[in-house]
């Protein structure tokens, strides 16, 4: 489904701010994998997601989605394969536009946008149903401007938008980090539901170890631009925070002060 082959990325090369963000990173996802990604600040989690999404081109290496080499494909063209939810709830939706307009924009991801009139009646009915399924009472507010919604509502909508046109791969970049705990739990619940219903292949970055363990069928941990832990299958099911930490000490060997503070 997704294959990252030896991708390297260095920011600000040759300057005092030089930062190796991805160091010969390779990763292969199978169809239907729900992978949680953890790691400390600057470990390269978001950089990896941005490389897949095409925010910039990697210095070297290859990225394949469903066998198609997308390494040089611009971000907006790659979008047809991807559903994305960002950390910042403001980034995933257009504030000045209505709920239904946002959904309709997402519905046409990967399609040529024609000069046909925008939203059809049938569409509106299906949006209403899908919004009702979120359980946030948004189904009667199709014409509401997104800017009037809360961060949690916007994030839930972004999730819906990411899955409206079934993507090959869903990228979640700490999408609950900016929400309060109760809202974050609700959004995670919706995430799990959408992923399961659509059988989406998913990469979810989280800063929360419990969530990383509770969700998905595979867990990877990044440190200094490399994957240092990759836990799947049976092993993932029996994972606990303690055993994960133990594995981390084993894998990294060096001091864990910063990361454990962040992850605990």
């Amino acid at each position: 489904m997704l294959e990252i082959r030896n991708v390297c990325k260095t920011f600000n090369p040759g300057t005092i701010n030089e930062k190796v963000a991805l160091d010969d990173l390779s990763l292969k996802l199978e169809e239907g994998d729900f992978v949680t990604v953890i790691g400390g600040n600057g470990a390269g989690k978001s950089t990896m997601l941005n490389a897949i999404a095409g925010v910039w081109k990697p210095d070297s290496g290859q990225i394949l989605i469903d066998g198609i080499d997308v390494t040089k494909m611009p971000e907006h063209k790659r979008a047809k394969f991807l559903g994305r939810v960002f950390q910042d709830p403001m980034l995933g939706t257009a504030a000045k536009m209505q709920i239904e307009e946002n959904l309709a924009l997402a519905m046409r991801r990967g399609k040529i946008r024609s000069l046909k009139w925008f939203i059809t009646k049938e569409e509106r009915i299906s949006y209403r149903q899908k919004l009702a399924a979120l359980g946030l009472g948004l189904e009667d507010r199709l014409k509401t401007k997104i800017g009037l919604l809360s961060g949690g509502q916007r994030q839930a909508l972004t999730l819906l938008m990411a899955s409206l046109k079934t993507p090959k791969l869903l990228l979640l970049d700490e999408h609950t980090a900016a929400l309060d705990p109760k809202t974050a739990a609700k959004v995670l619940e919706i995430t799990d539901k959408i992923v399961k219903e659509n059988k989406l292949t998913t990469l979810m970055i989280t800063h929360n170890m419990n969530n990383a363990i509770a969700y998905g069928n595979r867990l990877i941990m990044l440190s200094e631009g490399k994957i240092i832990l990759d836990i799947k299958g049976e092993e993932k099911q029996h994972l606990t925070v303690e055993s994960l930490l133990a594995k981390f000490y084993e894998a990294s060997g060096d001091s864990f002060a910063d990361d454990s503070a962040l992850l605990g």
Binding site: E75, A94, E101, L105, F118, A162
Partner: peptide
């Protein structure tokens, strides 16, 4: 129209547009 609407979206949120 479908296309015209993407123009309005472009002015509202570029990151969202590229993702879509």
């Amino acid at each position: 129209t479908e296309f015209g609407c993407t123009l309005r979206a472009s002015g509202s949120n570029e990151a969202m547009c590229r993702a879509q």
